[in-house]
Each structure stands twice: as C-alpha cells, then as structure tokens.
Simulated assay, not measured.
Amino acid sequence: MPQYQSLPAIYDALMAGVPHTAWLARMERAVREREKQPQSVLDVACGTGTLSELLYRRGYRPVVGFDIAPEMVQIARMKSEARHYEIAYSVADLAELDLGGRQFDWLVSVFDSLNYITDPVRLREGLRRLFAHAKPGGVLTFDMNGIYALRYGLFTQHEKNGPIEHDWKSHWDEDEKLCRVEMDFWVTDPHTSTRRYFHETHLQRAYAIKEIKEWLTEAGWEQIEVFGNYGERAPNARSDRWLFVCEKPE
C-alpha cells in the first residue's frame, strides 16, 4: 500500500498548522515533572525532521531521528544540511530498530506515527526496541490517535491552502479496528499554474489504552501515564489523541 511516496514533497506545507511546538512543550513539562534533565534525544518516526529541528534549536545534543519512509528522511537530511544542523537521520523500521547499541535520555514520537504500525506484534516489538535504546532512567513520550478519531472519521476533510488542495475520506473497519484514508491531492505550480494530481492510501490501526499499557509494561517501561489531547487529565471517550509518558528504571 503506497504511503508517503508523493506526499513528502509537500508534507511540510501541508502540515504547517500542526502544533509541534505546543506538543513538544507539553512533553518537556512531563519530563521535567519527573525531575529528568535529558540531553540526548531520539526522534521516533521523525518524518521530515520538524520535531528533530525543534529539539536541536532547544539545545538537545545529540539529536538522532529515524523513519521508515526513505523519501521523508531524504527531505529531513536536506533541511538539516541547509541549516547546518548536526542531526543524524536514518531509514529504519521501529520493529527492527538497531542503532548499534546507542542509548538516549529521551525518546519522543509525535503525530500518531505509531498508529501506522497496524500489526500488533510489530508494535509490541517496537516498544521493546525503544526500551533497548533508552538509557537507565530514560523517558519515552509519544502520542497516538485514539479510537474516537479513527472510528468517527476525523480524517475526513477537504481543504485548500495556497497551492495545495486535498480531499480525504476515511473508512472505518470495526472488526479489524482499521481506518483506511483515501487521500486525493492537487498541487498547483505557482510559476506555471499547472495542476498536478496524486493519490495515496493511508492505513492506521486503533489500539486500546489498556493494551498499549500492557505492552509497555511487558517491554520493561514503568510509571506509565496517559493524558487526553495533550492536556493534564486522563483521556475520556471523546479524546482523539492520547499522550503516553513512561520511563526506564534506573
């Protein structure tokens, strides 16, 4: 199933309104509340490197990112090279992650990247691989789309922003807990006014908080907390995004 093939070229423009800075600030607060002072950070499913660059500008060192999509990683590398940021990016599958024994103080993932792992076995293994790449006392923070977002079609949308127009339609499979999003894009070249069309199909799986917490515990993570919509309270039935915070024992 083609995902993130044509999309990377316009990804940053399409996602310009995503509140990466606010999300990162909330995660930083969660880390500080645990009396942690991380230096090294691993950006899990880094995409085009937007969060990695925010982390770098905030002074974290080293910052390392990886993503399963080569096209996204290529753009992340080009951006960091142009800005002279020393961020190391690589192409990797979370369920097979092996960074040669490197461990980090803080591991972070945003924008429902883990929902794209639709095989529960591979997600469980991915959480174990993250545990192996955390230093003792290291913290993991990540978000996921809640079942409410996927079941009730929050992906269905039509927007036009400058030269980019998109029309997305989501389809929910209750039995499989899968959300398939058919994405149509039209991109207008500002110089020639020619319009290019492409289509992608994206697939996300809805998981239950209970099973994610069980798999985190199974992997060795402790002191697991979950917040709804990057707020201060536990999620409720209408929370469309969940924030998980946990740590590796010292």
Rank of each mutant, 00 (worst) to 15 (best):
L7S: 02
E250V: 15
T194K: 14
D189Q: 00
R233C: 08
W168I: 02
F244D: 02
V181F: 01
V187L: 08
L55F: 06
R180G: 10
R151S: 02
I68E: 08
S52G: 11
A69H: 05
T217M: 01
T118E: 06
A237R: 05
P62Y: 10
F185Y: 12
R129K: 13
E33R: 15
R128E: 05
G100A: 15
K248F: 14
K160A: 12
R128K: 14
D98R: 13
W186G: 09
Y11W: 00
L99F: 07
C46Y: 01
R32I: 12
E33I: 10
C179N: 09
H191A: 03
R83F: 03
I117L: 05
L94W: 02
M78C: 09
A88E: 03
G126H: 07
G137W: 09
E33D: 15
V31H: 11
A45Y: 04
L114F: 14
L123R: 06
T156W: 01
K160I: 15
A9R: 05
T188I: 09
A208I: 01
E159A: 12
E222I: 09
E232H: 06
W221S: 04
A149F: 01
D43F: 09
E232L: 09
D175V: 13
G228H: 03
G146I: 12
A92I: 14
V245A: 14
R233S: 13
R195L: 10
E71N: 12
L114A: 07
Q74H: 05
S193R: 12
E53L: 06
R83G: 01
G126F: 06
H20R: 08
Q103Y: 05
R77Y: 02
D12Q: 05
Y116N: 04
R238K: 13
K169P: 08
L130K: 14
Q3R: 05
